[in-house]
């Protein structure tokens, strides 16, 4: 990990949803890290004013690149710039990747249980990509709670992973608006239990989302008998 600031260049950008976009950053030197880590991005205005925010890495593109996915917050200072203004070819200062707890590598084994609320899917997607790229034989499940089909990140890629990799099971839960054949509603304890590996499989569980989402889901899983030490959590906005 690097604790000094480096200048990276935006080498590509693509929209994920109407208010989120994935930004690919190219570093001057090779960059390595672990799925689940984050980077700090620092922006500087003309007068020297600076703002720093942390974003989870969504994808590692060795040797020189990584991707972050940023969702625009209504009252945000940095995210509206990253989603709406930043252009390919622009430079950004980056520190990291950072973090050694909310991480998964294929060596960690499993089963691997991922549970995402909204944009909390970003670090979990990095884990799922790591799982796919390493052709891991570890059984993996992703339960992904979204507001609507239109607010889903990585939809195409997730569909491919779900179809092509028999080790991976995807469950999408829609809270406000569902596609045909599915129903929308608040995520329930029963739905979480049904989507998860049972406690006797001792899955490694990673939960990421809003504080309310993480608090609810993690307490249900503890009630179900999952060992608290097997449950790792991360919240955005925290």
């Amino acid at each position: 990990m690097r604790r000094t600031w480096q200048t990276a260049q935006v080498s590509a950008a693509r929209p994920e949803t109407a208010d989120a976009r994935t930004i690919r950053l190219r570093f001057p030197e090779p960059v390595t890290g672990t799925a689940g880590q984050h980077v700090d991005l620092r922006l500087t205005a003309e007068d020297g004013y600076q703002a720093v925010r942390s974003y989870s890495v969504a994808a590692w593109v060795p040797p020189y690149e990584l991707e972050v996915t940023v969702e625009e917050l209504d009252d945000g200072e940095v995210s509206p710039f990253l989603v709406g203004v930043l252009a390919v070819g622009d430079d950004l200062e980056v520190r990291g990747p950072v973090g050694g707890w909310f991480t998964w590598t294929p060596d960690n084994g499993g089963p691997l249980q991922l549970i995402a609320g909204g944009s909390g899917v970003v670090p979990l997607m990095a884990m799922l990509r790591s799982h796919s790229e390493s052709r891991s034989a570890v059984p993996a499940r992703l339960l992904y709670s979204v507001r609507s089909p239109a607010s889903m990140f990585y939809g195409g890629e997730l569909a491919v992973i779900g179809q092509e990799n028999s080790q991976v099971r995807l469950d999408i839960a829609y809270s406000r608006e569902a596609p045909e054949g599915a129903t929308a509603g608040r995520l329930t304890h029963e739905a979480v239990t049904a989507s998860c590996f049972p406690p006797e499989d001792a899955p490694a569980i990673y939960i990421c989302g809003s504080t309310g989402f993480v608090e609810a889901v993690s307490s249900w899983l503890v009630e179900d008998g999952h060992e608290p030490a097997r449950i790792r959590t991360e919240r955005y906005g925290g």
Partner: peptide
């Protein structure tokens, strides 16, 4: 001082 980020103005508090 770091090079300014093109187009970033920020919201000073």
């Amino acid at each position: 001082m770091a090079t300014p980020t093109s187009g970033f103005t920020g919201r000073r508090q």
